[in-house]
Design a protein around this nucleic acid. Structure first.
Lengths: 215, 215
DNA sequence: AATATATCTGAACAATCCTTCAGTTTGGAA
DNA sequence: TTCCAAACTGAAGGATTGTTCAGATATATT
């Protein structure tokens, strides 16, 4: 049996009765809350269990270790994002690049806004765990979907769609991170996130497309 | 005496003899190395001291606590960035927006590239400490300098320069983070960082400028 | 009602960890 | 050389943490 990269991070057992489903959900929510309330150094299995109204032993029945709690949050978020992009990719007809770029930006912002606390909590995990090892397949899904969307532009084409995809997503991620961060909250940057994300995606993607014109 | 937000994070004493200057520098470097070698949970004062070839006691003569080690790295990096932007702001003559945008992007990438290990180490700290509390004045310096640079465009003007500044910097940060991250290293994204950063900054800033035309 | 299985509990253990401080070594001024 | 302050040492203390497991409780099945 080959050891997977995500071994020791997956849930330990599946909830069968309904009460255990409630427990798992409570632990998820508590993970986020503890992440927001304390700093990473005080993120503790005991604290999460307390906040979830559950004993530590129960927590360890569904999560093999502390890292798995963070993993679950991260994976949830990225899968929602990937799913959203795939939905757009399969629904979109050929259209002007501006429209496609806008829909990519809107999707990104929508997912981030759907659960702001989870989003903020995510940003605190960042360096704590190896993000790639945890969810490289999810990133691949996102890349493929966005690439597919870009292919539907009827007024532009990309010489290097992979790079264009990587750059938009990374730039949107940076803008969202900055806006959700504590720097932004005081200055009302969050209100502009939607419009600025659109502007950013549209402008960059047009530039990236026209860069390949004479190739 | 009012308590400052950065109390308990500043260096404990200034090096007087030359050997102590060497020690402090060794601790800085060791901080980065430990950050890269182990994950955040195993970032330990003892480990940093060992790697620096120094005893823990010595470490605590210059840093009041573990957090201060991270703070020092972060502050170093951001101050280098702010200084670079200020240098550009005071040297730049009136010029086309494209040139100014390119110089902003170049400066950003240059600082990040100057010490890639420190850059990568920084990304691991992220959520571990309250970034704003630590260095909000440095961020203000960066914002002011970039705003000043944008003001020198002789072919464009900004209705909302603060937002434009925030968005470029956040987007560039996201792109850099993604490129330095482990996702990017395998795919050679780092080679494109310079050109993509330029493209991103130029495209967005033009869009942001023309957005205020009819106001 | 009786049995089996799923779920939950929380005290206990071993492993670190951060930080201090009494004492030693080193560098330079007198 | 003498002497003082700067710089360094590292064992020890007090506190916290991740994880386990033997037993208690709740739900489902017969």
């Amino acid at each position: 049996m080959k050891a997977s990269a995500t071994d020791g991070l997956k849930p330990r057992k599946q909830p069968i009765q309904s009460r255990s489903g409630v427990t798992v959900e409570a632990i998820h929510e508590a993970t986020i809350q503890v992440l927001l309330a304390e700093d990473l150094g005080r993120f503790t299995t005991t604290r999460v269990a307390d906040r979830a109204g559950v004993s530590v032993g129960t927590l360890y029945q569904y999560f093999p270790n502390k890292e798995a709690l963070l993993y679950a949050i991260l994976l949830n978020h990225f899968e929602a994002m990937a799913t959203e992009f795939e939905r757009i990719a399969s629904n979109a007809e050929n259209a002007p690049l501006s429209d496609l770029a806008a829909s990519i930006a809107d999707a990104y912002v929508s997912v981030k806004m759907r659960n702001p606390e989870a989003t903020k909590a995510m940003y605190r995990i960042a360096g704590a765990i190896n993000q790639v090892r945890l969810s490289s397949d999810v990133f691949a899904r996102m890349g493929r979907a966005v690439g597919e969307i870009l292919g539907k532009a009827n007024d532009a084409s990309f010489a290097d769609p992979k790079t264009a995809t990587f750059t938009v997503l990374a730039a949107l991620a940076g803008l969202a991170r900055g806006s959700f961060g504590e720097l932004g909250e005081d200055h009302g940057v969050l209100d502009n996130l939607r419009i600025e994300s659109r502007r950013l995606a549209i402008a960059y993607l047009h530039a990236a497309a026209s860069a390949g014109k004479n190739a």
